[in-house]
Nucleic acid binder design. Structure first.
Lengths: 109, 109
DNA sequence: TAATAATATAACCATATTGTTATATGTATA
DNA sequence: TATACATATAACAATATGGTTATATTATTA
């Protein structure tokens, strides 16, 4: 299915941060909870919590509570979806057609 | 080749904007110059110019001057690279191993 | 129940992002 | 050369982002 530009941009914004990319790379190895991620990064627990929350909003990770811990797992399907979305962006041929009708296209050489 | 987290994040930031995604979608149809893009979007000429400049910095588009116009073309290779980079993020197993050595991993159930 | 541990949220700050208008630069043409 | 057109850059404003510390929430355990 074709994903809207705004939706794709929103998911890409969630991905477009080195810390969040590192979290995803770690979750590829195994599920982790926030308290395991904290000592790996030089940022506070609330900062990590906000990063995983951002990934969750974009459905790039899923959470499972296990007692006092919340384990996060990667949603590989979502990553595949975003790859597909980038190579199948919504078609804007109509916009270019309108431009031509208005005589606003540039023809050179 | 494996791309560093910061580099991937930087390219993803260039992609993570609806206007820039629409520009890329238009360039998939044919090369365009800034003056053709302006009437398609509800933003000023300098705003469009800055967007294509951001895409150029990330090597997602290339420019060719033709007389007074600058035509922009999509660099599909770069888009493929970023797709590959996302599915082959740098490996952080070592970080998790250190965590285990320090006894900071959580074992439950 | 009280204390502890893990996580999330609130309030705040510094910086980045994305738009604006004004202006500079580069190229073609009268 | 002077003018016009396309594009880029500068200066600025509003909002978003990513960090901080303090505190609230949720679950476990003494």
């Amino acid at each position: 299915m074709i994903m809207e530009f705004e939706k794709i941009a929103d998911i890409l914004k969630a991905l477009a941060d080195p810390t969040r990319l590192k979290i995803l790379s770690l979750l590829r190895i195994r599920d982790c909870c926030v308290c395991e991620l904290v000592p790996i990064f030089n940022i506070s627990q609330p900062a990590i919590s906000k990063h995983v929350s951002r990934l969750k909003t974009a459905e790039l990770v899923r959470e499972t509570r296990k007692g006092q811990w919340v384990f996060y797992s990667i949603n590989e399907k979502r990553l595949e979806e975003i790859g597909y979305a980038i190579s199948h962006l919504p078609d804007l041929s109509e916009e270019l057609r309108k431009l031509e009708q208005q005589g606003l296209t540039v023809t050179c050489e």
